[in-house]
Design a binder for these strands. Sequence first.
DNA 1: CTCATAACAAAGTAACCAGTTACTCATGGA
DNA 2: TCCATGAGTAACTGGTTACTTTGTTATGAG
Lengths: 182, 182
Amino acid sequence: MSTTTTRQTAEERREAVLTAAAGEFSRQGLHGASTDTIAKAAGISQPYLFRLFGTKKELYLATTARAMEEIYQAFERASRGKRGEDALHAMGESYTGLIENRERLQLMLQCFAGCDDPDVRESVRRVWQELVDLVERTSGEPPEVISTFFAKGMLLNVLNAMQLFDDPTPWGDRLIAGCEPS
Amino acid sequence: MSTTTTRQTAEERREAVLTAAAGEFSRQGLHGASTDTIAKAAGISQPYLFRLFGTKKELYLATTARAMEEIYQAFERASRGKRGEDALHAMGESYTGLIENRERLQLMLQCFAGCDDPDVRESVRRVWQELVDLVERTSGEPPEVISTFFAKGMLLNVLNAMQLFDDPTPWGDRLIAGCEPS
DNA sequence: CTCATAACAAAGTAACCAGTTACTCATGGA
DNA sequence: TCCATGAGTAACTGGTTACTTTGTTATGAG
């Protein structure tokens, strides 16, 4: 009976919780997901989840912030050693890969929808500031080009959310085709 | 005591509920909003809300579908009697006006975020199909132009959600400026 | 071996939620 | 005047929620 359970560090548990939370929050949003479900998916008790993250909202913010920061890091990696159109193109390419991970995509969309909450809004604004700064700096392109870059990203977001890549339609395919750089 | 209460038709009540629901759902999403709050805001009892709409989700779908159909109608009105770039420009102008209503904007974003749900996704896809069809037909522009049109709309959505119009930043202003047709 | 510390959970708690039952009353037509 | 129909609600139900209290056990340093 005395099964000797080995313990993990709090940091390892936090990691597991963040992973589980990403799955739940991405599908159900802040209010739709339950801390109990997340705790179970992470393999810990629900009280311990609260010990690790304080409140549900703090966990949510940690989860979403991480997801969005991954985009920043991917852009940095993709653009390293490149400039101008080259850099922009590389970041664009990396983005299509990023949002094929629907978990990350939907977490971002949850954030946009949740922007009525000041904490969520602040978090999103901070990441976007860094993102825009990075893209402007590494590409050196004028505002019109930068806006088009982000605009096409946002369109791909919703097309992907609608699952128009997995379950295509003629009109969806036309929109996707129109996103390719000519 | 016998205060003679005048009664409204079910249709009038439905209207009141849809209005109240738009406010709540836009801010809190499907799971964050409570049927009790919506009913109180609409001036009816919570059981009667269920009599009128069956389930919370049906009410949600009715609310969001209406919000998105208003976009279609606005586009139709704006483009009437116009063609080509003219029509496209008129619809673009009308869109900036439409999403200044943050309630409608956020309802749409809630839908995008909620696309994991098949019913929500189907509803969004239907409206988009009509929207794309309308814009393609009335403008007659090629896919690249159509995509750019919707892309800029989606970018304006998130910029507005972040409240970058009410509470501006340099980087936000640059993105907004880059959206203007040159 | 000792003991402080950190990992972890069982069992609550109070509030809230979607949805139901069972009922009252107003209205308009015959 | 009667009554069928539709408008409307008080009171409840079974379940879930975020979060707490209180405790136990593993672990690593001295």
